[in-house]
C-alpha cells in the first residue's frame, strides 16, 4: 500500500486550486474527438463527477489506483466505459477521456511556477494507470455486449414448435456446441412444463455429427422429460450418423428413435390415442 496519510506532494493542492479551469479544459479536450456524439452537458456532468472523485482520492495521499481510495473513481470509470462501449464508441475514444485530463493537467503545470517534474511524473503515472483501467473496463463491457447478443441469437434460433395438441418438436440444426445444445434442451423442457404437452420430439435431421456430449444431452433430456411425465422421441438419425453413433458405443437404451419426424409424430399421436389411419393406397 502506498497510502501515506497527510503526505503532500503538492498534487492535490495543484488540482484543487485549478479545479475549475482543469475540468473546463478537460471537457473541451474530450469533446473534440467525440464530435458531438455525447452532449456537452452530459460530458460536463460525467467529467465533473469523475474529477471530484479523483481529487478526493488524491487527497487521501494514496498514489495507487488499485487502492481502496480510488474505488469511487474506478466505479465511475467503469460505468462510463460501459456506457461508451454500449453506445458503440471505440476503446480509443473512450480512454481519451482519461488521457485528456493528463494533457489538461500538464498545461496547468506548465503555467505554474511552483510545480515541477515530480508532480508531472506522479500525475502522469496515475492517469496512465486509470487510462489502462478504462481500456480493460471497456473490453469487459464489449464482451458482455457480445455475449448478450450471442445468447439472444441462440434464443432466436431455437424454436420449439407445437406439431399437434400435446406434441412439441424441436429441430436441432448444424454444428452443435454444448452451449447451444444445452439451451435447446432447457427450452424444450420449459415448454413441456408450460404447455403440459406429453410428447416431445427432438429432430436431428439437420445435425452434422453427434458426439458423446451431444448424445449425453439428448439422453439427459429424454430422461428429464420422462420424469415430467412426457415421452421423448429422437427422430431423423441419418444412416451415416447412426453408423457413427453405434461405432462410438453410444446406446440410446429404451428411448424411442424414429427415422423421420413424420414417423415420430405418427408414433406420438398413436400413443396419445389419436386414430391415424393411412389411406388404402398408402405405403
Amino acid at each position: 500500500m502506498t497510502v501515506a496519510a497527510g503526505r503532500d506532494d503538492g498534487i492535490s493542492g495543484l488540482l484543487r486550486s485549478s479545479a475549475r479551469s482543469l475540468t473546463e479544459r478537460w471537457v473541451e479536450l474530450t469533446a473534440a474527438p467525440l464530435r458531438g456524439r455525447v452532449s456537452r452537458a452530459e460530458l460536463e456532468r460525467e467529467l465533473g463527477e469523475l474529477f471530484e472523485a479523483f481529487l478526493a482520492a488524491v487527497e487521501t495521499g494514496s498514489r495507487d489506483v488499485d487502492d481502496e481510495a480510488y474505488a469511487e473513481v474506478r466505479a465511475l470509470l467503469s460505468e462510463l466505459s460501459r456506457r461508451r462501449a454500449r453506445a458503440g464508441f471505440t476503446p480509443t475514444e473512450t480512454a481519451t477521456g482519461v488521457f485528456s485530463l493528463k494533457r489538461a493537467v500538464f498545461e496547468v503545470i506548465e503555467g505554474d511556477e511552483g510545480a515541477g517534474i515530480a508532480e508531472l511524473v506522479t500525475v502522469s503515472q496515475l492517469l496512465d494507470a486509470l487510462g489502462l483501467w478504462t481500456f480493460e473496463a471497456y473490453a469487459k463491457a464489449r464482451e458482455e455486449v457480445i455475449d448478450e447478443q450471442a445468447a439472444q441469437l441462440l434464443e432466436l434460433t431455437t424454436p420449439v414448435v407445437k406439431l399437434w395438441d400435446g406434441v412439441l418438436a424441436v429441430p436441432l440444426v448444424g454444428t452443435l456446441d454444448s452451449g447451444r445444445t444445452q439451451v435447446v434442451m432447457e427450452k424444450l423442457l420449459e415448454s413441456l412444463v408450460n404447455t403440459g404437452a406429453e410428447h416431445a420430439i427432438i429432430d436431428i435431421t439437420g445435425v452434422l455429427a453427434v458426439d458423446t456430449q451431444v448424445a449425453q444431452y439428448l439422453l439427459k433430456t429424454a430422461t428429464a422429460a420422462r420424469l415430467m411425465g412426457a415421452e421423448c422421441t429422437i427422430s431423423g438419425i441419418r444412416p451415416h450418423i447412426a453408423q457413427t453413433i453405434v461405432e462410438l458405443g453410444i446406446e440410446f437404451g429404451d428411448i424411442t428413435t424414429k427415422a423421420s419426424l413424420a414417423d415420430a409424430l405418427l408414433h406420438a399421436l398413436r400413443r396419445s390415442g389419436v386414430d391415424v389411419v393411412r389411406g388404402r393406397t398408402g405405403r
Binding site: 455429427a209 453427434v210 458426439d211 456430449q213 450418423i241 453408423q243 457413427t244
Partner: peptide, 11 residues
C-alpha cells in the same frame, strides 16, 4: 460416413 466418423472423433 467416413467424414462423419473423423469429424466425430476429432470432436
Amino acid at each position: 460416413v467416413d467424414q462423419t466418423k473423423v469429424v466425430t472423433a476429432a470432436s
